[in-house]
Amino acid sequence: MGKGKRQRKAGAKPDKAEEAPAPPPRAPAEPEPPLDLPPPRTRRRINALIAVTLGFAVFIPLTYYMSDDRRDERYAWRMFSAQRAEVCEATVVEDRLDPDGQTRSHPLDLVVTIHQAWVSGLKLGRPDIVDRFLDYRCEQPDVRRVVLTRDCRSGAGRPLPPDVIDHPCPDAAPAAPAPAAGS
């Protein structure tokens, strides 16, 4: 035995008779099947496609979290968010040029004007819908200014500060204000 040890230290191959019995080889927990890899060129293309797809899938919701405006929750995987739990009312008041040439404020009945589903979008303050709605109203010939007010309560019922958007119509011709009473 001692001789054998010395031989191993010297780097020589040990005598077979002197070897301790080797433990049986342990089978791996799960045999790894051989990979069916596509050709390198195809693989490069697939890898690029995977990277681009995942990049998009991660980047799109990330833009929501990087943005200051948190009202547009599309593509952000924010189902049943705190924002959606808010209960809001939306009211619109327009400055319109009346037939007598005076500009006066008129409340707008939203449900009569657009579909109920869009009213829900306005209540949530979804930016694209709000912007398009304000432009849409300004496309009406007599509308000079649109004021959208959202009054909301949080999911727990706390009143939130009102959100007021005052939108003067860009192409509206200046009109004479309504004369003061008695003039």
Binding site: A76, W77, S81, A82, G155, G157
Partner: peptide, 25 residues
């Protein structure tokens, strides 16, 4: 994975963690 990971992030808001949103639901 991406869908549920971002959903987890969205649920870390104070309103969710405190249960406010669940109370509302």
């Amino acid at each position: 994975t991406v869908l549920y990971a971002f959903t987890a992030v969205s649920k870390t808001e104070p309103e969710w963690r405190s249960g406010e949103v669940l109370i509302r639901i």
